[in-house]
């Protein structure tokens, strides 16, 4: 049985109104995981709509009921019962990319070097993307805070 209080789970929360598009989050993520300054290797991606001047980010929500976990045929993706963070075990992954298709945000991506899926692992509790974000556009928050923010920002309703 899960020991996790869903509302208190630590997740990443992105506020597009604070983002500058500097991509230090991607730089830090790729270096932390691959020791490379390679934006393509980052586990999150910030997109900038040049026409409207708006930002958005695709990043793992460490879902309560992750579709990537449900879709994986090899049980290579596991949601940690204590922390709620969803991680890929590269020793079990066969690189079928079903998780990429199943995820609404296509967060798990296929690493061509290792032929396995890779994704955000919450940096063992100290997410580098949040740590290096100057305007704190991406930060660590509770699931409850993320619900409230996203409902207000995207649905314009209060939770």
């Amino acid at each position: 049985m899960s020991q996790l209080n869903v509302e208190e789970q630590k997740v990443l929360l992105y506020d597009p109104s604070r983002c500058t598009g500097c991509l230090f989050c991607e730089v830090a993520c790729s270096y932390y995981h691959f020791k490379r300054f390679d934006l393509d290797k980052a586990h999150l991606h910030v997109q900038f709509d040049e026409k409207n001047g708006e930002f958005e980010a695709a990043y793992c929500q460490h879902c309560d009921e992750p579709l990537c976990v449900a879709a994986c045929p090899k049980e290579a993706i596991v949601k940690d019962e204590k922390t709620g963070w969803v991680k890929v075990n590269p020793m079990k992954c066969v690189g079928c990319q079903t998780c990429t298709v199943a995820c609404p945000l296509s967060v798990p991506w296929f690493n061509m070097d290792f032929h396995v899926a890779v994704k955000c692992d919450f940096c063992d509790g100290d997410p580098q993307c949040a740590k290096f974000c100057s305007p704190q556009a991406i930060k660590v928050a509770t699931r409850r805070e993320a619900w409230e923010f996203n409902a207000k920002h995207y649905l314009e309703v209060d939770v």
Binding site: C22, L23, V27, F37
Partner: peptide
């Protein structure tokens, strides 16, 4: 209207073309 947008200096270290063009 794009005052907040980064100038691209940080991403220059990772991808010059992206930094300049985007």
């Amino acid at each position: 209207g794009l005052e907040r947008l980064c100038c691209g200096y940080p991403s220059m270290q990772a991808n010059e073309e992206f930094s300049l063009k985007h």
